[in-house]
Design a protein around this nucleic acid. Structure first.
Length: 117
DNA sequence: ATTGTGACGTTGC
DNA sequence: TGCAACGCCACAA
């Protein structure tokens, strides 16, 4: 710690990489998990540099709170994000994630530990 | 140091 | 109920 790598961006990448397969999360969820709930915008912004870091970040699994693929336009190809999501079993319609709440995954939520709360 | 921005979120009307 | 505007915080130039 005490390193530049502690940047908010690095934390975002770290959390984003923890997104399980076939699941998606929201910028706000990541921001809140990092302690900067009001920096949801920064989360998305960090994704802008996701290609600048390694390992690559599954930014395609990150959508806004409405389930809209807001950042799809920032990918190599606008339809690339949707393709990747569909490839994971997530259905997309009109740039929106179907059953968004069902595939929504929040950081800190233990999948194994059913003892939520 | 200051300014601007940005893949959101929330509140207001 | 839908749309608009604001706020907000962290990073880049």
């Amino acid at each position: 710690m005490s390193r530049k790598s502690d940047s908010f961006f690095l934390k975002v990448y770290d959390v984003a990489r923890k997104i399980p397969f076939g699941r998606v999360t929201t910028y706000g969820a990541i921001a809140r998990y990092l302690g900067t709930a009001r920096s949801a915008r920064m989360v998305g912004w960090a994704m802008n540099q996701c290609g600048n870091v390694y390992p690559p970040v599954p930014a395609h699994r990150v959508v806004n709170r409405t389930g809209l693929l807001t950042g799809k336009h920032h990918f190599d190809s606008p339809n690339l994000m949707q393709q990747l999501l569909e490839n994971e079993g997530i259905k997309i319609e009109d740039n929106r994630v179907i059953d968004f709440k069902k595939v929504l995954w929040e950081p800190g939520k233990k999948q194994g530990k059913r003892k939520r709360r």
